[in-house]
């Protein structure tokens, strides 16, 4: 916990300095940081490119996040670099604490996302991006013991995001759909592939949100997950979030989480908090 506070304090310092921040896009269009380090919601990587880089700007984000459910806690430290409103490179380090077993799992995620076409707000076409994530377990004894087939793997996804400035109730709305090819168990924390299934499957992830004003949004996310391991059923994840963008330097997300059954512990619900600094 102390480490998280130190990180948060450092983040806020960095954000408040606001040195030469990328600022070519409208507020909130860089999204928050998802648990894998990509720009998006908490659970789902969206088609948006991180930070506020437009035209020839470069920028990036750093973020700390925590998901606390009944029997587990996930801590994520993430950073991204974005080049124009085009390319996003990200890295995330995850520590998954199995509180009842007194042990933890660790995963690193290296991500690449490229805006292929369209725009989040303007023109006819929604913003469409393609991404890959290379994931690896840096502690593999437990995933291996429960049937995981390998300790590293690739995910690939296509995402489409669109904003309606004056949607229902004349509020600004966002919708995102992501289709991911993956065989990761519990986001990859329990390895990749399993005794029941060892091939990548297409999984649908979706998000929608409404802006109460241009700095404050509420929404929901849903993430379909494969069920590869025989020892315990894996279920889909969902969240209901509030996202606050007080400036182009800071984003704060709080959410209710329902991660379903994890490694035999049923109906894991709890909260999610994420603090992002953009520059």
């Amino acid at each position: 916990m102390r480490k998280l506070f130190t990180h948060s304090a450092a983040l806020l310092l960095l954000a408040s300095s606001g040195a030469a921040a990328a600022e070519g896009r409208l507020l909130a269009t860089g999204g928050a940081t998802n648990v894998e380090g990509a720009a998006g919601g908490g659970l789902v990587p969206w088609a948006v490119i991180s930070a506020y880089t437009e035209d020839d700007e470069i920028g990036g984000t750093v973020a700390v996040s925590r998901a606390q459910v009944d029997d587990y806690r996930l801590d994520v430290t993430a950073a991204s670099f974005s080049f124009r409103n085009r390319l996003e490179v990200s890295v995330a380090s995850q520590i998954f604490n199995l509180e009842n077993l007194g042990t933890e799992l660790r995963q690193q995620v290296f991500g690449l996302k490229y805006r292929v076409a369209g725009d989040l707000i303007y023109g006819q076409l929604p913003q469409i991006s393609a991404g890959v994530q290379y994931k690896r377990n840096t502690r593999y004894d437990l995933p291996s013991a429960v049937g995981s087939q390998r300790d590293s793997d690739w995910d690939a996804y296509i995402a489409a995001s669109r904003v309606w400035l004056a949607g229902p109730f004349d509020r600004t709305w966002l919708a995102n759909v992501t289709v991911r090819a993956t065989r990761a168990n519990q986001f990859g924390l329990l390895g990749y592939g399993g005794d029941l299934n060892d091939s990548r499957k297409l999984q649908v992830e979706a998000a929608t949100g409404m802006f109460i004003n241009r700095a404050l949004a509420v929404g929901v996310e849903y993430r379909q997950k494969p069920d590869n391991l025989g020892f315990a059923e894996e279920e889909d994840a969902m969240s209901a979030f509030v996202a606050w963008f007080p400036s182009k330097n800071v984003a704060l997300v709080g959410a209710f989480l329902d991660l379903g059954s994890i490694a035999g512990a049923r109906s894991q619900t709890g909260y999610y908090l994420s603090l992002q600094a953009s520059f």
Binding site: E23, G24, R25, L26, D55, E57
Partner: peptide, 8 residues
């Protein structure tokens, strides 16, 4: 007028 100009 750039994309960033329009947003500004």
């Amino acid at each position: 007028v750039t994309r960033g100009d329009f947003n500004a």
